[in-house]
Design a protein around this nucleic acid. Structure first.
Length: 879
RNA sequence: GGGCGCGUAGCUCAAUGGCUAGAGCGCUGUCUUCACACGGCAGAGGUUGGAGGUUCGAUACCUCCCGCGCCCACCA
């Protein structure tokens, strides 16, 4: 017999259990292990990271999935790893350097990278250790890093092959420049935030040899939110059909600060409704203007340095000023020259770097790009055809739309930490793409690849690609990818594209998107709001199981997940409830372990009922597990465990367990053991620790390879039993009514009395009076044909009849009358509703037969009840 | 500007077009009975955002409105 402490203490056992699982290789899989392959690759957390609630959710879901599949006998592997997270990691280490008064340039490239590796070695494993605290059942023997030796080989191969296929090219194009991190960014690394800026209007005067046409003697007014870019203006555009401006098309204006002129051109892009209807064109610093510049073959003048200051070439008196200082200075100068027309507030979207939060500057630059169109089209087809399914499906739609509008991907970053681009530049300007230096006079491209370029390979490089390994053949394509919808664009889309390109297959069959974890009111967690919850605190205080369960119970696919400390505490209480249910069982089972159920004829009503309800919960939870509907998984199991098993069955089973009849007691124990065993199995993927501890206690399993984590996933132990459910529901109804009677009349539970029951369900109820007596605290239950009219009786009404007991000082008559009146009013209201329904001919004609029949039954029952209530009230009043 | 999602009890959320719209937390009362006070029992609490429509019947389907949130997008 196992002796459990009175209250569950997660901290006492979690670490030890985890070590035991790992020691026994419970999480490790080999390619030739038995079972159908099932694989998940972890979305690799940043090496800089520490576990936050988002990770906790993401990994809890993956763990629940992989644990269930493992129990189902699959050859299940969950491969963990870390992302080198180029820009994020470099930023962290640069900050450390800054604290020492250094920049990365002081160290130089090699020393800096060495420094990052050193830091990675010291603290890179933190988040993986934290995953262990959460209970994540990763196969740690397969841990990988996006920047390790093996992954490097793959990254280089992919780059070189794509280049050879013409899908990677180098180009001088307008890209998003982050002037703080000093690197190019891809489009999706730019976040558009609404900002209240200003719209400045100023005028360009006509070129000296070109007086303005009638109506435009004073020049041409243009508007801009970034006045400083006028240093790079090379045209003014108007709409070709804008009659106001027909006369000025082809004329030239002069630049106020530079010795040059440029033309007024016509382009359909211009919206005549906006501003003055004339747009200044800066092809080198604005995406629209860039397009116009290409169409009209305009000069592209870059007027900013990479650090965001105005350059010498076109800056003139403004050279060296920061772009925002320049904005002010230029407006001031324009004003002095009498050229500034007005400045008014303007709300618009401004692109910010998702990393540094700096305002992104569109810049012309030489960068490497991936031509994504053909791969994107294939990826769209993968989703359309259902070869990749999204859960929830609406996110698949969104995914397709995004792929349809995808532009080429700028993959070069002006950073040091990351995969160096395998391209070599010759003094002559020639470029070669290959792993090793072509020889003397060749310099390797200084840039590194976007972090996502390497993580897109994750689902196959984890299994050894480009080698043709047995692991790759076994576990690729992977089964399910679990991730927040927020990185579908960054990561998921690119995995689909690149997997198809290089392995000819989609990398996974299912993408399960969960939402983002928010606070209890749906607000984003952030340091500035002070509403951040640290999952490690939760685990320390309430246990990993409670933390996991609290996350899962709100994690409907694709829907953001609210979380509050109190809710986690609530799930700790659930764990404690389970703990105590098992504590009760273990102290009473006397060594009975889960095995065969007693034959049907020896099962009592409560046995049949609990088995039927268990099967209902199992079926519901299992189906929900299958479609990753976590709230239903949690709700069905929690409510069975607490509201049915603990609240009713454990109470009713005491009758036999504490009773004299040893055969009955042993049948009861057998059923109890089976039910608990199955419940623990069903809950294990969500709450691995407490279920493992309790299951070992229940079964006597030794741990190690004899772990619940390796036990079989439950199938139906019995069928649903509608008859038992109906009968037991009646028992519950009568018990509840008796309790209500007690509660409302101040009759203490320990005051026992006899009950005369008049019911049309006598046959159903009669065999179960023992349970009835135990649960309702009755001396005796007698069945009578008709309820006595004796005014000296208290009446307890239930759905199928009425029960009476001598008042004999039990209750307060006045109170009872008022209670009955209330109930009568309620019943009359209900009857009115039913009668109205049945009087409606079209209802009777059109509703399904069972529905109409049920209505009729309710009508009769309600009428009977009203009669009874009325007579009861009058008899009481007679007293 | 385009697309998507959401408005149900004080809070967070459920309810194949059909029983009296449910659960958890919170709240009220009550009980320390031998699994559990991290608990039991009982209870209060709803014009399902608003207005129309379809239907015998709408929380659910349709239209419009109001409010909230997210994604995408190059209007200076």
């Amino acid at each position: 017999m196992v002796d459990l402490p009175k209250a569950y203490d997660p901290a006492a056992s979690e670490a030890e259990l985890y070590a035991d699982w790992v020691e026994a290789g419970v999480f490790h899989a080999e390619h030739d292990d038995p079972g159908e392959p099932f694989s998940i690759v972890i979305p690799p957390p940043n090496v800089t990271g520490s576990l936050h609630v988002g990770h906790a959710l993401d990994n809890t879901i993956q763990d629940a999935i992989i644990r269930r599949e493992r129990m189902r006998g699959k050859n299940a592997v969950w491969v963990p790893g870390l992302d080198h997270a180029g820009i994020a990691t470099q930023t962290v280490v640069e900050k450390q350097l800054a604290a020492e008064g250094l920049t990365r340039h002081d160290l130089g490239r090699e020393a800096f990278i060495e420094r990052v590796w050193k830091w990675k070695a010291e603290s890179g494993g933190t988040i993986l250790d934290q995953l262990k605290q959460l209970g994540a059942s990763c196969d740690w023997e397969r841990e990988a890093f996006t920047f390790d030796e093996q992954r490097n080989v793959a990254v280089e191969k992919v780059f070189i092959d794509l280049y050879d296929q013409g899908l990677i090219y180098r180009g001088n194009r307008l890209i998003n420049w982050d002037p703080v991190a000093n690197t190019a960014l891809s489009d999706i690394e730019v976040e558009h935030d609404e900002v209240t800026g200003e719209l400045a209007s100023f005028r360009y005067l006509w070129a000296d040899d070109e007086p303005g046409p009638a109506g435009f003697e004073d020049g041409l007014v243009v508007a801009t939110t970034r006045a400083e870019t006028m240093l790079g203006d090379t045209a003014i555009a108007v709409h070709p059909e804008d009659e106001r401006y027909t006369a000025v098309i082809g004329r030239h204006v002069k630049h106020p600060f530079q010795d040059r002129t440029f033309a007024v051109i016509a382009d359909e892009y211009v919206d005549p409704e906006f501003g003055s209807g004339a747009v200044k064109i800066t092809p080198a610093h604005d995406p629209n203007d860039y397009e116009i510049g290409l169409r009209h073959d305009l000069p592209m003048l870059t007027m900013l340095n990479l650090d965001g200051t105005v350059n010498d070439e076109h800056g003139g008196e403004f050279a060296g000023l920061d772009r925002f200082e320049a904005r002010t200075a230029i407006k001031a100068r324009l004003d002095e020259l009498g050229l500034l027309v007005e400045v008014k507030p303007h709300v618009h979207q401004v692109g910010h770097s998702s990393r540094s939060k700096a305002v992104v500057e569109p810049m012309l630059s030489d960068q490497w790009f991936v031509d994504v169109r053909s791969m994107a089209d294939k990826a769209i087809e993968s989703v359309r055809s259902g070869r990749v399914t999204f859960i929830p499906s609406r996110l698949g739609e969104q995914f397709i739309v995004w792929l349809e509008n995808l532009h080429d991907w700028c993959i070069s970053r002006q950073l040091w930490w990351g995969h160096r681009i395998p391209a070599w530049h010759h003094e002559s300007g020639e470029i070669k793409v290959q792993s090793d230096s072509p020889g003397e006079g060749w310099e390797q491209d200084p840039d590194v690849l976007d972090t996502w370029f390497s993580s897109q390979l994750w689902p196959f490089v984890l299994f050894g690609w480009p080698e043709d390994t047995p692991e790759l053949r076994t576990w690729f394509p992977t089964s399910t990818l679990v991730t927040g919808y927020d990185i579908n664009t960054f990561w998921v889309a690119r995995m689909v594209m690149i997997s198809e390109q290089f392995l000819g297959k989609e990398p996974f069959a299912i993408v399960h998107n969960h939402g983002l974890v928010r606070d209890e009111h749906g607000k984003k967690m952030s340091k500035s709001f002070g509403n951040v919850i640290d999952p490690l605190d939760l685990i320390a205080e309430f246990g990993a199981d409670a933390t996991r369960f609290a996350l899962l119970r709100s994690a409907a696919p694709g829907v953001d997940v609210p979380l509050a400390r109190d809710w986690v505490e609530g799930e700790k209480k659930f764990a404690n409830k389970l703990w105590n249910a098992l504590r009760f069982a273990l102290s009473n089972l006397d060594g009975v372990t889960p095995g065969e159920l007693p034959p049907p004829e020896r099962r009592t009503l409560d046995d049949r009922w609990v088995l039927s309800r268990l099967e209902a919960a199992r079926a519901e939870a299992d189906a929900a597990y299958e479609v990753y509907d976590w709230p239903i998984v949690c709700r069905s199991l929690r409510s069975f465990a607490w509201n049915e098993l603990a609240d009713w069955y454990l109470e009713s089973v005491k009758v036999r367990i504490y009773g004299e009849d040893e055969a009955a007691a042993s049948d009861a124990k057998a059923v109890l053991a089976v039910v608990l065993d199955e419940l623990l199995r069903l809950l294990h993927p969500t709450m691995p620790f407490v279920t493992e501890t309790l299951w070992r206690g229940l079964t006597g399993a030794a741990g190690g390879r004899e772990s619940l984590a390796l036990a079989a996933w439950p199938t139906a132990v019995s069928e649903r039993d509608p008859e038992a459910e109906e009968a037991f529901a009646l028992v519950q109804d009568l018990v509840t009514e008796v309790r209500r009677f007690r509660s409302q009349n101040g009759v203490a539970d320990k005051v026992r009395f006899a009950l005369d029951v008049a019911t049309d369900a006598r046959e159903l109820l009669a065999p179960h009076t023992t349970v009835l007596r135990a649960l309702a605290g009755l001396d005796e239950v007698r069945f009578v044909d008709e309820a006595s009219e004796d005014p000296g009786l208290a009446r307890v009404l239930f759905s199928r009849g009425v029960a009476t007991t001598p008042l004999a000082g039990l209750i307060d008559v006045e109170e009872e009358i008022s209670r009955l009146r209330k109930e009568l009013g309620k019943a009359e209201g209900m009857l009115k509703g039913i009668a109205g329904k049945l009087a409606n001919d079209s209802f009777v004609a059109n509703a399904p037969e069972q529905v109409v029949a049920a209505e009729r039954e309710r009508q009769v029952a309600t009428e009977t009840r009203i009669d009874e209530l009325a007579s009861q009230i009058s008899t009481l009043e007679a007293l």
